[in-house]
């Protein structure tokens, strides 16, 4: 049965479990994310954030349950082209092709749309360079077109990755610890950049970050995950310190663990 509400949500998670053999990595009853929301995922390392984000972005499929991306189950979204129009990923490790220069890395966002011949020619003589220039302007890296990616700093590489995302132009941005390897100032800049992009182009943003401060400042909804289960899913102003303590606190659990 298709509800009216379906069309208001870009993502709907229904009774999803991800298991590896006997181990249940993630279990989520329900999450509904509306278009244009900015959601921060908080949780300590190993809590299941990456697994959850990979399922939301249709990189992996849930073992049980279903995830609807714009009304379509993620299991049916096999085609690289359609999926790349829907979801774009930002990772902690930038994931640029180190030996390619910046303009080719940025234009790689178009690989889902260009045919093979155009893609190859672009390696030698970049096609549609204006798109790359505009994207690089947006991320404040205007004069780096011909520089090899490996020569850039961490913050610059992350911004090139975001420029590539802009060229790809997906409706949903999923960022998996995008700023964990950056210093606080650059981390703040990157988060602000992602949020600006989300606001300007009405893209939905889901990001897992470690900084509670950044989450509170830039995101309107915060989800806490611990040992694969959702601890809380609240609007930012409803987040309490007690919730955070419970989320990150391991010592009480260690005491309570059966020996």
């Amino acid at each position: 049965m298709i509800h009216q509400n379906l069309l208001n949500y870009i993502l709907q998670v229904k009774c999803v479990t991800k298991s590896y053999g006997d181990l249940t990595a993630v279990h989520v009853d329900s999450i509904d994310i509306a278009y244009g929301e900015k959601v921060a995922i908080l949780g300590s390392s190993g809590s299941g954030k990456t697994t959850l984000l990979n399922m939301l972005g249709a990189v992996t499929e849930p073992s049980e349950g279903s995830i609807l991306l714009k009304g379509t189950p993620t299991s049916e979204l096999r085609s690289g082209r359609t999926l790349s129009q829907l979801v774009g990923f930002i990772h902690q490790r930038f994931d640029l092709v180190q030996n390619l220069n910046v303009v080719n890395n940025v234009l790689a966002g178009k690989l889902g749309q260009w045919n093979f011949l155009k893609s190859i020619i672009s390696l030698v003589s970049p096609r549609e360079v204006e798109i790359a220039i505009r994207a690089l302007d947006k991320v404040a890296l205007p004069n780096k077109l011909r520089i090899r990616a490996s020569k850039l700093s961490g913050g610059e590489q992350q911004r090139v990755a975001i420029a590539r995302l802009l060229v790809q132009d997906p409706e949903l941005i999923i960022a998996d610890e995008p700023v964990s390897s950056l210093d606080p100032t650059r981390a703040r800049n990157i988060v602000r950049l992602l949020v600006d992009i989300s606001n300007e182009s009405s893209k939905t943003l889901i990001a897992s970050i470690h900084s509670v401060e950044l989450a509170r400042e830039y995101f309107n909804r915060i989800i806490g995950i611990k040992k694969g289960e959702i601890q809380f899913d609240v609007l930012t102003h409803s987040l309490t310190d007690a919730m955070l303590d419970d989320l990150y606190n391991l010592s009480t659990d260690l005491l309570n663990e059966p020996s």
Partner: peptide, 21 residues
């Protein structure tokens, strides 16, 4: 693999991943 995964996520087929990644 991580750079290659990134390219695939941008919609690249394996042939394009070969040349770009």
């Amino acid at each position: 693999n991580n750079a290659l995964q990134s390219l695939r996520a941008s919609g690249a087929s394996e042939m394009k991943v070969l040349f770009y990644g």
